[in-house]
Amino acid sequence: MMCIMKIKKFIWIFILLILWQITALSGKVSPLIFPSLGMILKAMVHAIIQGELLSQTLFSIAIIIEGLFIGAILAFVLAIVSRMSESLNSLVETLITLAHPLPGIALLPIIILWLGTGRASIVFIIVHSVLWPLLLNLITGFRATPKVYSDVGRNIGLNRLVLLKEIHIPASLPYLISGFKIAWARAWRALISAEMVFGAVGGKGGLGWYIFKQRVFMDTAGMFAALVVIMLIGILVEEVLFERVEVLTIRRWGMTEK
């Protein structure tokens, strides 16, 4: 089943590429608006050889990992706090209600005022976009743990921490993983938009700044090359990393269908 799904995905991508190429070669649109696949590939190879695209990508990924890490720790801490008492739980829920709907980009002007335009600000925005969806999923996951599991745990005398580690976390893992998927996608978006606004943060600027530079120097093919890199990384993480984690955990434990 999985295999056929994947092949279908590739077929669709292939078809979309062909449609793209037909449009580009139709001669009805300027290559400055709609570059052909060859031009994009050339721009990509050039940018990779020249080194900037890769170093900017690594720079961006490093920031994302940092933000994801901090965000995940905060989410865990808050999720645990929320289970300690009713009033703490309502505090955490209030925080989520207030903060979750705020897009990171809307916070930008305030973050610039508070933290300036350095690396810390970008990490802050990523943490913001990672924390809330992750926390929400974690709490939902904890709640979705069948009561009989925790009853059994308590019966055999597990304390709160062990209960959390052995029962709540594994039982909420499907939620955690989908939370991470959302968090990852949100982090990317937040990162790219912040980098486009901030400029050469940390002496480099990352992929967002790279795209912005291609725009102001009118290198449309180069702009698409960077977008392709973002998509490739997305596919890699989604199809390889998350897939692996799911196979090793929730599928092996028989917690999900596929």
Binding site: I112, T117, V197, F198, G199, A200, G203, K204
Partner: peptide, 16 residues
Amino acid sequence: LDNLLITMAHPEGMNA
């Protein structure tokens, strides 16, 4: 000095 750049429209730049 390209690694020190930050893009801002004139009024924002002045405020900053």
